[in-house]
């Protein structure tokens, strides 16, 4: 296995039914797999295909779609210098994903961040606590329904949050050739 497409083919031949689709975009290879086989596929990637580095774990919120959430794993092989991305959809009704901390120790904090920001639970994670917000914070801030300005919360002697004044914002740039004055970040209503 020397290229990402080789790896994608090797996975396709072994886990044919569980690989729902493969996407190739500008030499980036993405495998969309079923959640049931996710851990097996990632274990196979590490043990047989030589993906010894887990670069990143992240999650997506496709609010309005079903299944709503999606896990994203970025794998890298130090020996062949190949990147592969593995995605798996997670339903909102059953927000449980098998942990990969037993494959890559680095997944520990990444999965804690996903749990903190998106509320996806990792089964058999050794230390599943919030990592950025504090224990007891009642929201998952990176979900789509959570407002940018935040929501008020109060935990005496621990922390509190308030609502940030947006003053007509959010302040976003606008692609334009008209000039820097029309491009610069300002409230778009």
């Amino acid at each position: 296995m020397t290229t990402a497409s080789d790896a994608a083919q090797a996975l396709n031949s072994k886990f044919g039914d569980s690989i729902l689709s493969t996407v190739e975009f500008r030499d980036e290879h993405t495998l969309v797999v079923s959640l049931e086989k996710l851990h097996d596929i990632l274990a196979h990637c590490r043990d047989s295909l030589g993906f010894d580095v887990l670069t990143d774990v992240s999650s997506l919120d496709h609010m309005g779609d079903e299944p709503r959430f999606e896990m994203v794993y970025e794998l890298y092989s130090l020996s062949t210098k190949v990147y592969v991305r593995v995605r798996a959809a997670v339903s909102e009704d059953d927000l449980k994903v098998p942990t990969v901390t037993n494959l890559w120790a680095t997944a520990d904090w990444h999965e804690r961040e996903v749990y903190d920001m998106m509320g996806i639970e990792f089964v058999d994670h050794p230390d599943l606590r919030r990592i950025l917000m504090w224990e007891g914070y009642p929201f998952y801030p990176l979900r789509k329904e959570f407002p940018l300005a935040g929501k008020p919360s109060e935990m005496p002697d621990v922390a509190f949050t308030g609502v940030a004044p947006l003053e007509g914002g959010p302040f976003v740039t606008q692609p334009s050739t008209a000039g820097s004055i029309s491009r610069e970040p300002r409230a778009r209503n």
Partner: peptide
């Protein structure tokens, strides 16, 4: 004032 961080995570000015 919280500066550019108009967000859920940042106190909007230490004078609060």
């Amino acid at each position: 004032t919280g500066g550019m961080y108009r967000s859920y995570a940042v106190l909007q000015g230490i004078d609060q």
